[in-house]
């Protein structure tokens, strides 16, 4: 059942860009979904389907052109600061400040996101230990390998202990071991009660991690539900087939 009190509530969310040469470009068209507490909700779609634009609207980086989106009851257009306080956003394209150390990065994001100043050092220690980055916690980010940077980026996302985590294609560009580690981290965060909104174009990943999946294509959500429910609707077993089935139906 969908309610406005769910941690993530999206209704008729739309994003239209204005391009000088092409005119209006509809990146996201009237989509709607909710994420329930403690679940992993996956946005599954091909490149350019509108996943990143949707997540950027939910994290207030972009402003919706129309529709409503609420995070923990806060409207993304009206109360962006409160929204950001309750969300941790991780993106493969979101880089870290190269001249800061890992500790300084985590500390900065804990403080700027409203984490209590007196508890911040302990929080930084906790995250440094959790992600095993003690050895290079005081090294400048630009001296770290991409695997190390990935761990620091996750720690940064969790710095203020937000109840909702948004991961935009978190395993893109990672080798198999790092991708598996990322999946383990997502599972662990879910176990801690975090609500996770997660976008991917990798079917196996969505199949393995998500409690519910929304298939997004050309800015529209074609279907959403549990894997079982999607199987029932299409009669296909594998997510890849389910995905293709919905795309063909839409075409």
């Amino acid at each position: 059942m969908t309610t406005v009190n769910d941690p993530v509530f999206v209704k008729d969310l739309t994003k239209t860009y204005y391009d000088e040469s092409r005119g209006p470009v509809h990146a996201v068209r009237q989509i709607g979904f909710t994420c329930r507490p403690g679940e992993i909700f996956g946005l599954l779609g091909a490149n350019g389907a509108g996943k990143t634009t949707t997540l950027r609207m939910l994290t207030t980086i972009l402003k919706p052109s129309a529709g409503t989106a609420k995070i923990m009851g806060y409207d993304v257009a009206e109360e962006p600061v409160e929204v950001r306080r309750h969300v941790g956003f991780y993106s493969a394209t979101t880089a870290l400040y190269p001249r800061l150390t890992a500790r300084e990065t985590i500390e900065f994001f804990a403080r700027i996101n409203g984490y209590d100043a007196s508890r911040t050092p302990a929080r930084v220690d906790e995250l440094v230990e959790r992600f095993g980055i003690e050895e290079y916690a005081r090294a400048r980010i630009d001296k770290l390998s991409s695997g190390m940077k990935q761990k620091v980026a996750i720690a940064r996302t969790l710095a203020h202990d937000p109840p909702i985590l948004v991961f935009d294609e978190p395993t893109v560009g990672l080798d198999v071991l790092n991708a598996l580690e990322m999946q383990a981290i997502l599972t662990e965060l879910k176990a801690q009660g975090k609500t996770i909104l997660f976008s991917t174009h990798i079917m196996s990943e969505a199949e393995k991690l998500c409690d519910r999946i929304a298939i997004i294509h050309e800015g529209r959500i074609l279907a959403s539900g549990t894997l079982e429910a999607l199987r029932e609707r299409t009669g296909a077993h594998y997510l890849e087939d389910i995905f293709v089935s919905f795309i063909q139906e839409a075409a």
């Binding site: 600061v81 400040y97 190269p98 409203g114």
Partner: peptide, 14 residues
């Protein structure tokens, strides 16, 4: 250029 701008925009402050 360094793609840290998006990181900065996710900070919970005006």
């Amino acid at each position: 250029e360094r793609s840290t701008w998006e990181t900065t925009l996710t900070a919970a402050t005006d």
